[in-house]
Nucleic acid binder design. Structure first.
Lengths: 341, 341
DNA sequence: ATTGGCACTCCAGTCGTTGGAGTGCCAAGG
DNA sequence: CCTTGGCACTCCAACGACTGGAGTGCCAAT
């Protein structure tokens, strides 16, 4: 069955190219992998694979290099995700266990990912809009001044001050607090907002809400709708870009620029939060011009892997199985840590 | 007066080398700057300057390049800080005005600095230990559960939960709140800690403090002593490293690695918070091996320029007057913004 | 102290040359 | 029909020789 062997050849070429960083020729292939055929046979296969667009030749008489399409086939059908060793798992767990708060978890994750993959790591902060409301606290600092504390499942805490036009007594305050929590606690942000909205609109013919209630709920909704902190990502391991050796001004500069455009990164990571698996975007598959010559390996984390995303950016020539394994492992441990705390 | 001319020659060499990035020769010098002498004269001066260690020759028959010592002399005695134009000032102000919170101020400052100087920018978060206490809020979430909110002059807000062994009534709570604020409000963190400590120790023979007071104050002191967030710095503009063109693996990689070592950066910036002026560290003057071939231009910001520091890291071959002006201008505006909010 | 003249140095770019790795194709063998 | 050895061909990358030009240092003259 020569079709099968062709795929084996593609796999071998990808693996060799990734490790040697040089175009791979037919002779070297048969030596390193024990394909029981001659170089000439391999050449025929390679010619066929090139014909189909999986390989590319830098110059007429050079070895072959995988194309984006070749990597794609490799990732989809030829690679088995390398299982992480127990030592690696222990290292990951140990490194993340020490985290003391959300910031620390995120920062440690970035460093860890960058170190494991030797690529540039990107971690998104837990998304506000996908968190659920854990608790809302309403306390009086003064008779006309309330402090709202909004505690989310992601561990984030938001707080707002509300000035009232009139005094509010403890009893009314308690009632307000329990009504708000009844409506919002446990809900996803979006649902909490609509529930709170219903509260003040007096949906079903109930009398209009008291001014104090309106003020509090409005502030709360504003806090929940404040998506700007959604836009936070942390980037690390840029020193790994040094391995780009060649074509610096042409390939590293735009990449560094893209990495500082956090909006761009968020778009990139956004695609990864759908579906539980590790997402791989190879070369120009994505919408972002500047990253056309790089690959992105990312996945969601948190409950249902939908809270936010993390991943790495690197050259298309990368160790996909190993990288995917590392990304998945880190995402799992981060999810667990967040769940515990 | 030939001594005077020699300095003029040094200045001219620094300026030309910064703008052309190439060793500068005697002929080019007399053409570009209207020194009314011949190239031969300049050559004598250059030989003397080299003898004294201000210049260096890459090869026997090449132009001259300033040494670290040469830059140092230039910065200390030959350069006038370029005044920022009103257009620049408006741009800076406009860019920073839009900031909505502390995070935003810091992030905008980094981008602004990187853009103005075309170097790598580094901004330290306001130092906890140098902030003063603006207000302490103590509210009961439940009879045995208190929420402490610590608001600092830097705009930072810390909060802690305290579980009590016994119930506390509103009256006692109010008393506790005002005693704490009396002791701490307006004080520098360190002083606030000692004042609070005195509160529970009952310094002058007063009866020992109530258990609730002890618990609250201890938690508060702990929050104030939590210096880990002191260690935060934000780095931006790494894409500007691309201009390092030559010697990538040798000079950019260690630099990128150093930039990720935030502890290292903090040490670097730490030196800059003393004294109100802009600090310039050239080449190997500082303690950090990895940055031996770069310069750091930094200054403090905030009240007395002592709250925290910001600055840039770049090649020793940089436009010192312009860079110093930009750093100073940004620091001033950041200070102003923080003061207003 | 300054300057023109002059010999000297040395890098950077250019141009052949060449060796080796790799290919494509073909004809022979399973 | 697939595989294989042989062979001519291609082309890069490395090496070395060459050379022009920019720059210097020194010296004698002013």
């Amino acid at each position: 069955m020569q079709e099968e062997r062709r795929l084996a050849v593609l796999r071998a070429i990808v693996e060799d190219y990734v490790s040697t960083e040089e175009p791979v020729g037919s002779k070297a292939l048969v030596e390193r992998h024990h394909l029981n055929v001659s170089p000439a046979t391999i050449r025929n296969d390679m010619a066929a694979l090139e014909e189909e667009g999986y390989l590319h030749q830098p110059h007429t008489s050079a070895g072959r290099v995988p194309t984006d399409k070749g990597y794609r086939l490799f990732v989809d059908r030829l690679s088995t995700v390398k299982p992480t060793t127990s030592a690696e798992r222990r290292a990951i767990a140990g490194f993340l266990e020490g985290a003391i708060d959300l910031d620390d978890v995120v920062n440690r994750s970035v460093r860890l990912l960058a170190q494991l993959t030797r690529q540039v790591a990107v971690v998104q902060y837990p998304t506000l809009s996908r968190s659920t409301v854990r608790h809302v606290e309403v306390v009086a600092l003064a008779p006309t001044r309330l402090l709202l504390v909004l505690i989310l499942s992601s561990g984030r805490v938001e707080q707002r001050l509300v000035e009232l036009d009139a005094d509010i007594d403890d009893e009314a305050l308690g009632a307000l607090r329990s009504r708000i929590n009844l409506a919002a606690t446990g809900e996803v942000i979006a649902d909490a907002v609509t529930a709170l909205d219903a509260l003040v609109r007096g949906a079903d013919g109930t009398p209009p809400a008291a001014p104090a209630t309106v003020a509090v709920v409005e502030t709360l909704i504003e806090a929940m709708s404040d998506h700007r902190s959604d836009e936070r990502v942390v980037v690390g391991g840029t020193a790994n870009l040094a391995r780009f050796g060649d074509s610096f001004e042409t390939s590293v500069r735009p990449l560094l620029e893209a990495l500082e455009e956090h909006v761009v990164l968020l778009k990139l990571l956004g695609e990864a939060t759908t579906g539980g698996a590790v997402t791989v975007r190879i070369g120009a598959e994505g919408p972002i011009q500047e990253l056309a010559s790089t690959s992105v390996v990312a996945t969601g984390y948190g409950p249902d892997d939908a809270l936010a995303a993390l991943g790495i950016v690197g050259p298309t020539r990368m160790d996909y199985p190993g990288t995917m394994a590392a990304v998945r492992a880190v995402a799992r441990y981060v999810s667990r840590i967040l769940d515990e705390s």
